[in-house]
Design a protein around this nucleic acid. Structure first.
Lengths: 199, 199
DNA sequence: CGAATTATATACCGATCGGTATAAAAAAAT
DNA sequence: ATTTTTTTATACCGATCGGTATATAATTCG
């Protein structure tokens, strides 16, 4: 009951996500948000709590809609395909024509004031979680003799994430998708494509 | 003549550089700066012009004092040594115990408001310049048959810079130097260490 | 000793920051 | 039709933003 909401929450959140993605947490003002989302401040606070709450919900949406390739990639049977799908998935997202360049998880709050320290910490944990998940996947691969000789699973995970974070900076600096694909090709050169083998 | 300055300009600039490095351009307030540098606002404006001018001078100092390894590395006779010195030089700077983690050229203004757009643009150009200089060096290496077979000089340069930018994010996320060194080892695996050859 | 010059300290500027109080508007419940 | 509930619009809040006007303090020059 009561007066019905005049805007679509999901649509507004999508806009907020894109703004934070493009301008960062501190670089996006409430005026940017309310004007972009087409709602007033009381409406924003009524639905999303405050700026920090809105960012966290936007991040959640980002993970759900833009980073879904990541956990899908972990399901690939061969570790090399996991790595390659993750690298190309990041590059695709970072250079999509719709939406900002780079990565919300990095653009959001890399270096910031104390006021954004909590958001910064949250994004760091976010990155660590992804790296840990990939490390676990590579641990499984190690047991399956599915890693190149002498490679530590968690070092390999950090390596893959470092490349992905590097391409995020490259994308934010104007690099296009083919350029990032060539970087990825080079990054995977050391990892031999396994010969087709019948089970 | 006139009243003598009561602070050391170089020392103040060093402090400003570290503040911008740690908190970014927009995340660092004039209060942060004046308190850190131990001077008042009129003194800051008298010597450095304004916040933007101060940042640019801090960036200049950063390039001169922290990035000097880069152009030194370009002088290495073998391209692989150029690449390795650059990668380890970045990792060293990004994880130095004195000074903030990561890279001023990235932390300074990756994603920001319109107010910092000029600084952001300047940092992007900064990155492009480094990549271009490295690309030129690899072009020379190509002529000298000093690159691995089938590698394009400018793709190789982008690859090296992507790794370095990735380690900057890793350092800002808490990774230590040995961890980054292991990433670098992996990134250079594809590039065979040339057999010692007498000229 | 002034006079001129430069740097300092203090107080202040308009604009914008994130956030909210108040009240009108629009619906459901009685 | 009135009450209740929720959302909207407007106006406002103190704090902080980058930047500056004013005056005093400290030096050199004449």
């Amino acid at each position: 009951m009561g007066r019905p909401r005049e805007f679509d929450v999901d649509e507004a959140l999508e806009t907020a996500m894109e703004l934070f993605w493009r301008k960062g947490y501190e670089g996006t003002s409430l005026t940017d948000l309310t004007e972009g989302m087409g709602i007033t401040k009381p409406s924003l606070y009524g639905v999303f709590g405050n700026k920090e709450g809105l960012f966290l919900k936007a991040l959640e949406r980002y993970e759900r809609t833009k980073m879904n390739f990541f956990h899908e990639a972990l399901k690939e049977p061969k570790a090399r395909d996991v790595a390659e799908r993750i690298l190309r998935g990041f590059a695709d997202s970072q250079t999509a024509e719709t939406g900002p360049s780079g990565c919300l998880g990095i653009n959001g709050a890399l270096a910031c004031s104390e006021a954004a320290a909590e958001i910064q910490k949250c994004l760091i944990e976010n990155r660590h979680r992804g790296e840990r998940d990939l490390g676990k996947r590579f641990e499984r691969a190690a047991k399956e003799d599915d890693l190149p000789l002498g490679q530590e699973p968690y070092d390999l995970a950090r390596y893959i994430m470092t490349i992905s974070q590097g391409t995020a900076i490259q994308a934010a600096s104007g690099a296009d998708r083919p350029a990032l694909y060539r970087v990825i090709d080079m990054a995977l050169q050391f990892w031999p494509v396994p010969v087709a083998q019948n089970s």
